[in-house]
Write a protein that binds this DNA or RNA. Structure first.
Lengths: 322, 322
DNA sequence: TTGTAGGCGTTATCAT
DNA sequence: ATGATAACGCCTACAA
């Protein structure tokens, strides 16, 4: 029989004799035939692969996100290429380029900054869903309510009698970190309190020293809001160094409900983000764009809720001071 | 000029007029031309993509491994497909299949068990480097010295006056966990002590309850060796429930130096594995196999050293008992 | 040095 | 329902 018939049989196209189709399938199985996706992609003018570009695979928030994206992708019949930019613009740019050359069917991107250059994707007509950190240029976007989450956390700190909360954040060109800082700032402003912000670079060895310095200063903060879980680690180490205990000597709330949050003493209060669900939502959005083609005008933004989980680290000092 | 000339110019083939080549390149740049990797792959009969198949992206050991593989791959000009099996044999098998169909140039695999079926890769002639957990069938393999690491840790527990160490492990068909259990067992046997082993399934909700039960039993263990960092979390939660403190009421050492190990009180003693370096080594090995073709006979095994890092959680009880 | 043309493995189109 | 065939975009003999 002809190659065409075989192709049809294997692809379950109607209009092929069931008996014949069966023969083809068994033969294929026996010979261990595997369709060549490369040739198929060429013919179909497109791959069944997505790119997932994240800033830091060591941050549990992004691994949970990745899990969501990968799981949903696999259910939709896509494989996902992992690109870890390490918060480096150069790497991000190169990765976006090679993703374009690989002719991925779509991409999920957590950009380094608001002005990340996504032209290689867009020029190639590759659908893009941006996640966690927004892009100035707009486009489909999935995130959690950073500003509100930070507001709620800061308010909580104040309601627990903490009087000088500080915000431990990231460089100001990091959109999400900046939104959280602003949420914090809105609250301290509202209460007529001074704003104390410390921006710790991503790859800094000196993070602990920076927080330590803050603690050593004149009007040292009595509590902290950290914008990601790695920063909570930094603060906890600085506190340990000075023998300061959370939920007693200082208050602490962190973004992201890391797995270890419940084994520190006292347990860590957090602003939880639904990282996995964000990944799944991004995947769904992307697959729709791929199916329906994408239309600059109809950009959608999905904002997920954050949840303040109060545990021991933010409880009030034994004898209220305020 | 002809397409052939253009192709040659873009690929820096010698035997093309430099001036002409330059014109081609500028033109290509201006038009934003991107070579179509799909067509190129078809022609070259191979992609520039690897598959990375891991059991659990939430386990920091595997994310560090992934980081190593991805970084090295990218330097070698490869992209990497991420497949997260979630310790599920069915998923593993399906993933290996699609990786084969995607005609990846090579694969790095952390198999579910010793008998994982890698035939779809092998039949397709795709080089494979197995990592962390060995396969019965042999082949290139990179890992850390699990048995010895467990021995050292258990000896340390005993030298610190702990008398009834237990091993919190994983299902017996998990090669690495099993090796660690054996390392533990060798030591307790040698000392004429009873072996207490608890195998906690990967997706178990009841892990904490299982450890709690152990603690409640007659001859409850006075110390623990956990075979991965997620299990350390489980033990710590069980201990918290009973208000037991490590490095005092019980001893604890875990495999894998998780980021949070130094912020629990007291800090966690660990058997550290060079996860990142294991990933890099696997990548190097894979790229050699791809270059030189691979030869069943010359399978190589790379075993990295583990390091016992003694911190507070394994220090002896205040008043020696024994 | 440059051009021509065949083929990589599929699938879609057009006949039969 | 099946068969023949062209095309997807690139690379590389081979010819000029």
């Amino acid at each position: 029989m002809s190659v065409a018939t075989v192709s049809r049989a294997l692809n379950n196209t109607r209009s092929v004799d069931p008996a014949l189709a069966d023969r083809v399938r068994t033969a294929a199985a026996e010979l261990g035939y595997q369709p060549n996706a490369i040739a198929r992609n060429l013919r179909r003018r497109g791959t069944r692969v997505w790119a997932l570009v994240i800033p830091n695979i060591d941050n549990p928030f992004y691994t949970a996100l990745a899990r969501g994206v990968e799981e949903a992708a696999s259910e939709l019949g896509f494989s996902v290429l992992l690109y870890n930019t390490d918060e480096d613009e150069g790497r991000e740019h190169r990765y976006l380029d090679v993703a374009g050359q690989e002719r991925v069917a779509g991409a999920v991107l957590v950009p380094r900054a608001r002005d990340s250059d996504v032209s290689s994707l867009l020029d190639a007509g590759i659908p893009l869903v941006v996640v966690d950190r927004p892009l100035d240029r707009g486009g489909d976007f999935v995130t959690a309510a950073s500003f509100e989450g930070a507001e709620t956390a800061t308010e909580h700190l104040l309601s627990e009698q903490w009087r000088r909360p500080a915000c431990i954040s990231r460089p100001a060109d990091t959109p999400t970190a900046e939104q959280r800082r602003q949420g914090y700032q809105a609250v301290v402003d509202r209460h007529g309190l001074p704003s104390v912000v410390c921006q710790i670079p991503f790859h800094a060895e000196e993070g602990v020293a920076m927080v330590d310095e803050l603690l050593a200063g004149e009007d040292a903060p009595d509590s902290f809001l950290t914008v990601d879980s790695m920063l909570a680690l930094v603060v906890l180490q600085a506190l340990r160094r000075r023998r300061l205990r959370t939920g007693r000597d200082v208050g602490l709330i962190s973004f992201d409900d890391a797995v270890w949050a419940q084994v520190v003493e006292p347990p860590l209060s957090v602003v939880a983000q639904p990282a996995y669900e964000i990944g799944v939502a991004a995947a769904r959005l992307l697959s729709e764009r791929i199916r329906d083609g994408f239309d600059e005008t109809g950009a959608r933004t999905v904002t997920m809720r954050t949840t303040l989980i109060v545990r021991g680290s933010s409880r009030p000092p034994p004898s209220p001071r305020g």
